[in-house]
Design a binder for these strands. Structure first.
Lengths: 149, 149
DNA sequence: AATAATCTCTACCGGATCAATCGTGTATCA
DNA sequence: TGATACACGATTGATCCGGTAGAGATTATT
């Protein structure tokens, strides 16, 4: 399960991507559209800003906008920075490798290859999918909403 | 990341699978071989017993053994029962579906398809891999240990 | 019958993490 | 100058994680 925070981050980025480039959006507007607690979203966008994914302008008429094109922001990137490693075991993480202390040896660890395979397939999806790939789904918003109900 | 508990569970099952069928193993022997805190492993094996994966015999000379052949115990099964759903979103779980409260509609949710794809590929690995698939790696234990060091 | 070795089960604990919320500060525009 | 935005650190309450403690039940051995 990914965290609520990561979910919010991804959805906020989609909203920003949907807006015209160069146009700044208020935190409050994004929060309202996506049902995200405003103060929580502040933190999240601040994190994304520190990681160079979005930019902000302060003061009245301030707001947020994407710093990179949506095609260049992958799900993997966002998830790693919000939730940490994607790998299911610390000894398989690329960004935060850590030995399993209780494990005698990585070569003979009985379960490591299985989770290595898991890590590879999930990275396969997450590192190739970008925020831009989500934009199509927002288009016929109303039609889809009807279908779902 | 999977939990420590799940890791222990899987490794304990591998140990049980490696023993002759019908032979009961002490918790303490499994714990020692795999560096698992004994009291914690007690709880884990009890869980696995309640789920019908292992059997126990009480009293002196008691112990645990597999209730099903190792080929029939999948990683997915064990992970679901220890760590809960494999799906990265509650609205994608098969064993514990739950609507995302903040999400307006599943059909228009911008990120749902991406995580659905993730869920499918990870389930693809975890539900086809069994405890028996791990047994080969334990065989030339010593050779592999040397290579790893 | 006593004893020792095992599993059974419930309760508990400290620390970490999660999902927010609060409050204050700072920049900017009208 | 005042209103409106973001900036940022602190705090909170709930839950989970990893593990420990201890009493009890069951069985084998002596």
């Amino acid at each position: 399960m990914i965290s609520q925070k990561a979910k919010y981050a991804l959805r906020a980025l989609v909203v920003l991507a949907r807006a015209d480039a160069e146009k700044v959006l208020f935190i409050s507007d994004i929060a309202e559209e996506q049902n995200i607690p405003k103060k929580f979203l502040e933190q999240i966008l601040l994190d994304l800003k520190h990681q160079g994914i979005v930019m902000s302008r302060r003061g009245k008429m301030g707001g947020y906008l994407l710093l990179k094109p949506a095609e260049d922001i992958t799900f993997g990137e966002v998830l790693r920075l919000i939730d940490g490693p994607i790998a299911p075991l610390p000894c398989l993480s690329k960004i935060a490798y850590r030995r399993c202390e209780d494990c005698a040896s990585e070569a003979t660890c009985e379960i490591r290859h299985v989770f290595n395979e898991v890590a590879n397939v999930t990275r396969g999806v997450l590192d190739k999918t970008t925020i831009a790939d989500c934009l199509v789904y927002g288009e016929n918003h109303n039609a889809a909403a009807l279908l779902d109900s």
